[in-house]
Simulated assay, not measured.
Amino acid sequence: MNADVVTHLRCPVCAEPLAEVGAAPPRSLRCPRGHTFDLARQGYVNLLTGRAPHTGDTAEMIAARADFLAAGHYDPVSAALADAAAQALPRDAYAPLVVDAGAGTGRHLAAVLDALPQAVGLALDVSKPASRRAARAHPRADAALADTWARLPLADGTTALLLNVFAPRNGAEFHRVLRADGVLLVATPAAAHLAELVETLGLLRVDPEKEERVAQSLAGHFAAVGATTVSARLALSRSEVRTLVGMGPSAWHTDVDRLGERLTALPEPVEVTLAVRIGCYRPR
């Protein structure tokens, strides 16, 4: 792992610093009290303690997401995050830390790191398939298996920029790990996001109170300092629509046979709205 990332990590058991041990793979991270965490062959470190209350996205969901993102359909979101990060990140002399909490495949984190050549990155996700991919997302990014609902395996006030893209928000922990001059970027679906598919395919609709719930989850810890909405029109094949459904929360609630019947009835290309709100927050 990158030494500039490891220096910010903390043992999830006792919160002591971690250091890499072992001269050759498989290596481990170990704290002064002897708690040891193995580095997987795929490049990520498992910093879960005990059994996680949930396992996150499945291998099938992560594979679908990787395919869809690789086609460039959500590149406008990545570009907007990278632009916001470049404008907001404190100008450190050396290796500020960018953390993506709920990173998935790590594609958005990679785009941000491309825009910040001085930064290093850490992808956090509770899903093993996600962490395997995120560990290879960028030369300056590492990945750790971690439950973002629990205490994050990071030192207090060590993160310069924290990304939260379509993922759960842990306001108290985000505040703890961010520097006083740090920035939190939160990406959530706007009301029009994928609206054409909601009725046609029976997908989950965006909560009309989504923005209010985001604000509540961060209340007392962060102050909003700006927001922008990324909008685009996507022209997708039926196969790409199936992949889009399979990579998100609707995958847990959609009948595969019924989805196939409805997809067959759609004309190609399928016109779909991309609408994502990116909020910028500073610690209080």
Rank of each mutant, 00 (worst) to 15 (best):
A215G: 08
L122M: 02
A190S: 09
A135S: 14
K128N: 14
P189F: 06
L145Y: 05
A160K: 07
A130E: 14
G182K: 11
L154R: 00
R213D: 00
A232D: 11
D142T: 06
V241K: 09
A155L: 00
D142K: 07
A215R: 01
H221F: 14
L236V: 09
D125T: 11
R140N: 13
R140P: 03
R133H: 12
P208V: 04
P189M: 05
V241M: 02
A219C: 09
S131Q: 14
T159S: 10
V230Y: 06
D125L: 13
H175L: 00
A137G: 02
A143N: 12
R205D: 14
V120I: 14
L152R: 06
A146M: 09
T148N: 08
A137Q: 05
F166M: 15
Q216K: 12
W149I: 00
A224S: 06
A195I: 03
V177F: 06
P189G: 00
L184T: 01
A192S: 15
A160G: 13
P117V: 09
L234A: 08
T228L: 14
S127K: 11
R151D: 08
A115C: 13
G202H: 05
H221R: 14
L197T: 10
L178A: 05
A224H: 04
L184R: 00
V126D: 10
A215E: 15
S239E: 13
V214K: 06
A223F: 11
G121E: 11
K128D: 14
R132I: 06
R205Y: 10
S131F: 03
H193I: 07
A115T: 07
G220P: 01
R205M: 11
D181H: 02
P153L: 06
S217F: 04
A224F: 01
A135I: 02
Q216P: 00
V177Q: 07
T159H: 15
R213H: 09
R213F: 15
G121D: 12
A195Y: 11
V241S: 06
T159Y: 07
L234F: 08
H193G: 06
A160E: 04
T243Y: 10
L145K: 05
E209K: 05
G171N: 10
N164V: 01
A195W: 12
T243A: 14
A134P: 01
L154K: 05
G182D: 03
L194D: 13
L116D: 04
P208I: 14
A137K: 03
